[in-house]
Design a protein around this nucleic acid. Structure first.
Lengths: 340, 340
DNA sequence: TTGTATGCGTTATCAC
DNA sequence: GTGATAACGCATACAA
């Protein structure tokens, strides 16, 4: 097959200037649409640029510009392959690209070390702003960056309370909503499946579960609570255990999309149907039988909101720090309305 | 709430040099781990950098470096929110980040104009390489970039045949496999649901369908073929039409993940069960009842392979152009084994 | 309307 | 071992 020969040479505005027989500055003016260039000169320059296949080196331009802005936004999420985060990322992308920014994405895999590494990498590239799903308990190493002029918005989970903008869901309230729904349908033995409690959303949702139970005068049976489930396989195993227990819960609250999927796998193999409400909506929730009742958050809106906050922060660093809490919505589909 | 004051000043190596009482070049040597610096000097410099919170400006470094490499990879896919592409993206990310590159992602929404715009934006940022799911019929505008030294790998669909590396699935063969499976189970009236035929994968899979039918001595009934379906809603409507027709097909081949989801929605409302085989696996394929038989491709592997090809191209521009075709795998789960 | 000189933050060259 | 100086590709200030 053919070989690719990269000459690795790219024309600069200097080359264009020589080609057009004008000065470097005139080329710069034409390319930046600055006024004060004769129409004929402009045409000459454009033709020369076209002939040479000139393409501006945005990296060099950024270096010299007064504001040093890179028009680059960094996004750090847990896992790009998780539909929750990819939907979030798409929301962010739509807004920032509409404003002329390019998006750099990195997955942290919930590992604070990885998170620090990718953040450092993004910062050395001088991104104008960062949208971060924070991992671990302490993001204070980012404070100097905020002072240094990098805009930062946390999303899904709070961090650097009061020092950076945050967009998140009403996690506790949403969990209360979902668990109360199960209680309203007559359930008392409600199992709870949750992620690692170091994750803020996991803590808040578990609190919501406890609150809802307490409000109904119920005491959660510790045997029905499984925490620290971080993937579908762990959730599947935990649900299997719960359903095989004696007594078994009559209902389950699965507190994120990974856990709900794992639970569905486990429940397929169990003859006795239990009620199920999940936190997070997912694509086929309406297709399985029965449809899965969920506490839905608008993940795309969460991403868009975070991006808008970031852009607004870029425009005015003086705007007061904002925290946006997006409401959740109970979507009734059948699985949550089974009676004990 | 608090206000954020960005002083917008960042220390440079010049500042570090002054702080450490050495020359700029010595700081550079220390930061780049170049040999020939006294241990004491090195410590002094490191301490000064630490005190000032120095962070190298990678953008400036790139500008002066001889190879001008940015350690940036651009990825252009159709839609980041589609699990197929986000899984692909994650595969790419894992490989390139492991090699010290950062990933810039952009969705083209299958629009050639958007594709050109984001590619131009990525190229002005001087990405070292591009991984592209090509949209539209002509990517020849990228040829100068290959010559200019940008490595390019196309993924999922071929482009610039023989001039750039490609990773794709065995689309026609996979479709043959799926449709033949339905034929083997006694189906003759097999409906085909496909995306817009300008998309290479859509064309190839439809060809596979036709081939499989022909091999069995069957003539596809035009009334059973619906093309140009680009989202779940369109697929759902098309399947509704097919299933309400007289006669209706006894089996369906849905040729991508969007279409399969739409078909499942439609089929939920139809009493007569039909057989179904889909192209692309998806997360809950084993959870719905019956499980969905699919022609699966390893999307993560496709992303990883594309990234590895790209890295290898970055290492040697002289390597012959390569085309990798990844096989598909029929996953039997129940929906494709219903008899007419 | 156009051009010259300077500098952004870093790496490269070459001298000491 | 260390440092002065040029240069990367472009924008900026200022001059003509």
């Amino acid at each position: 097959m053919a070989r690719l020969e990269g000459s690795r040479w790219r024309p600069t505005i200097k080359d264009v200037a020589a080609e057009a027989g004008v000065s470097l500055k005139t080329v710069s003016r034409v390319l930046n649409l600055e006024p004060g260039v004769a129409a004929a000169t402009s045409l000459k320059v454009k033709a020369a640029a076209e002939r040479l296949g000139f393409q501006r080196n945005e990296t060099a331009a950024q270096l010299r510009r007064l504001d040093q802005s890179s028009r680059l936004i960094g996004l750090v999420i847990e896992d790009l392959a998780n539909p929750f985060y990819s939907t979030l990322a798409r929301g962010v992308e739509n807004v920032v690209r509409g404003a002329g920014y390019l998006l750099m994405v990195a997955s942290s895999d919930e590992d604070p070390t990885v998170e620090r590494d990718v953040l450092r990498a993004l910062l050395t590239r001088r991104v104008d702003g960062l949208i971060i799903v924070p991992t671990g308990p302490d993001q204070s190493f980012l404070l100097p960056e905020i002072v240094g002029g990098t805009a930062i918005v946390f999303v899904d989970r709070p961090a650097l309370s009061g020092r950076a903008d945050v967009v998140m869901a009403a996690n506790a309230e949403g969990a209360v909503q979902g668990v109360t729904h199960l209680i309203d349908f007559g359930h008392r033995a409600i199992g709870y499946l949750g992620d690692d409690q170091v994750i803020a959303t996991a803590r808040d949702r578990y609190l919501g579960y406890c609150d809802a139970m307490a409000s109904a005068g119920l005491v959660p049976d510790e045997a029905f609570v499984r925490l620290g489930l971080h993937d579908t396989a762990a959730a599947e195993a935990a649900v299997n255990e719960l359903l095989e227990g004696e007594p078994a819960p009559t209902a389950l609250f699965t507190s994120n999309n990974r856990i709900t999927v794992g639970a569905l796998r486990a429940m397929r193999r169990h003859p006795t149907p239990v009620a199920l409400v999940g936190f997070d909506d997912f694509e086929l929730a309406d297709v399985v039988d029965p449809g899965i009742t969920v506490v839905a958050q608008d993940v795309g809106a969460m991403g868009r909101t975070a991006a808008e906050l970031l852009l607004s922060r870029l425009r005015s660093a003086e705007r007061p720090v904002t925290k946006v809490v997006l409401g959740t919505r109970l979507v009734v589909r059948g699985s949550g309305e089974r009676r004990p």
